[in-house]
């Protein structure tokens, strides 16, 4: 059973054991507007929590994607290269960015759950 976490940078992580699938939140995708380009991390890359490892660009601007936890990239969603609009259509599903292993589960404790994130994004 996977558990959903959010970061203050508006990324979501679906954690299953010691692996996580990562993307940007539906809220973030809405704020960003039409996504026209996604640059994904290299598979196999070891990343540290907070490191900028990917980029998402809308018509207007480019935003960094940070590693939400430390670990190793195990997969990248290549479908986004040809269909970046998937991020707007299904941010927390088919619009996932990458999968990674989690090297330090303790880092998850600083993240928000669904309710906390809903509060965080309340205007």
């Amino acid at each position: 059973m996977s558990k959903l976490y959010y970061t203050e940078d508006h990324e979501w992580l679906s954690v299953d054991g010691d692996t996580a699938t990562v993307g940007i939140s539906t809220y973030a995708a809405g704020q960003l507007g039409d996504v026209v380009f996604v640059e994904l991390p290299e598979v196999g890359k070891t990343v540290k929590k907070g490191e900028d490892i990917a980029v998402v660009e809308s018509v207007k601007s480019a935003s960094e994607i940070y590693a939400p936890v430390s670990g190793q990239i195990t997969a990248a969603n290549a479908a986004l290269e040809d269909a970046p609009e998937t991020v707007n259509e299904d941010a927390q599903g088919a619009g996932w960015f990458f999968k990674m292993t989690i090297s330090d589960a303790a880092e998850l404790s600083g993240l928000m759950d669904e309710a906390a994130y809903a509060e965080f994004t309340k205007e």
Binding site: G33, D34, V59
Partner: peptide, 12 residues
């Protein structure tokens, strides 16, 4: 206004 509900792509 930087954009409306439709978004920049559709407005363009």
């Amino acid at each position: 206004p930087v954009q409306f509900a439709d978004g920049i792509l559709k407005e363009h």
